[in-house]
C-alpha cells in the first residue's frame, strides 16, 4: 500500500509506522490492505441518505432506526453479511432540537454509511470547538438554527458511531424515497447542515 503520495509528510509517517508493525510481525501489508478495502468498499453517504429517506417515508422504519441502528442498516444490507463493524446510534433532530456529531479524541465516524470523513471533521479546530461553541461552528457552516433551538453534541468517545436523522424539509410530501434521499447531504448526517 501507500505507493502514492510518498512525498506528503503524513504518508511518510504512515509508511514508517506500517514498517514498524509489519517488522514486529503484528500484521502484514496484505492484512492492512484488507482492512482498508473492507473499510472503504461501498462506503458512501448515499447509504446514510437512503436510511434517512426511508425513515421520513415510513414511520415504522423510523422507530426501528432509532431503536436499533444496526438492525435498520442491515435491512439495506449495509455492512454485508456480518452487519456494521460498530454500534450505530441514530439521533433524531426535532423541532427545537438539533444534534451534532464529533469525535474529540480522534476521528470516529460511521464510514460505511457516511463515506470517508471530510478533512475538517478530523481537524483539531472542529474537534475542539464543536463541544465548546457548537452554535458558532454551525454558523460558520452557514447553518443558523431557529431561536431557542437546543443543541445536543455527541462525542463519539467509545464504541458507538453516531448519525443524525435530519428533519424532513417542508414541501417534500410529493417526493419518492429516491427523491428524498437525494436531498440528504453528508453534512446533514453529521449535523453541520440542516439536511
Amino acid at each position: 500500500m501507500s505507493e502514492h503520495h510518498q512525498d506528503v509528510p503524513i504518508a511518510v509517517r504512515v509508511r514508517q509506522l506500517e514498517e514498524r508493525v509489519t517488522g514486529a510481525g503484528l500484521v502484514t501489508d496484505a492484512d492492512l490492505d484488507g482492512v482498508l478495502s473492507r473499510l472503504y468498499a461501498d462506503a458512501s453517504p448515499v447509504n446514510g441518505a437512503r436510511m434517512v429517506a426511508r425513515a421520513w417515508a415510513d414511520p415504522a422504519y423510523r422507530q426501528r432506526l432509532l431503536a436499533d441502528g444496526n438492525a435498520a442498516a442491515a435491512e439495506f444490507g449495509f455492512g454485508g453479511a456480518d452487519g456494521l463493524s460498530y454500534r450505530l446510534a441514530v439521533v433524531a433532530n426535532e423541532p427545537g432540537l438539533h444534534n451534532l456529531i464529533v469525535c474529540t479524541l480522534c476521528s470516529c465516524y460511521p464510514v460505511s454509511l457516511l463515506g470517508p470523513s471530510p478533512s475538517w471533521y478530523k481537524s483539531l479546530a472542529y474537534r475542539s470547538r464543536a463541544v465548546r461553541e457548537p452554535a458558532t461552528v454551525l454558523s460558520e457552516f452557514g447553518l443558523t438554527l431557529p431561536e431557542g433551538t437546543q443543541i445536543a453534541v455527541w462525542d463519539a468517545s467509545a464504541e458507538s458511531r453516531y448519525m443524525v436523522l435530519p428533519l424532513r424539509p417542508a414541501g417534500t410530501g410529493h417526493l419518492s424515497e429516491v427523491g428524498l434521499a437525494a436531498l440528504v447531504t453528508r453534512n446533514g448526517l453529521i449535523g453541520t447542515a440542516s439536511v
Binding site: 446510534a89 437546543q150 455527541w154 467509545a158
Partner: peptide, 24 residues
C-alpha cells in the same frame, strides 16, 4: 459503557448546549 450527558455550563462555565459522551 454509558451515554452520559453533560451541560455545557457545567463543563465550560458558559453555553446552553449539552455534550453527551460514551464512558466506561
Amino acid at each position: 459503557v454509558y451515554a452520559v450527558r453533560f451541560r455545557a455550563f457545567d463543563l465550560w462555565g458558559e453555553g446552553a448546549h449539552t455534550v453527551t459522551l460514551a464512558l466506561w
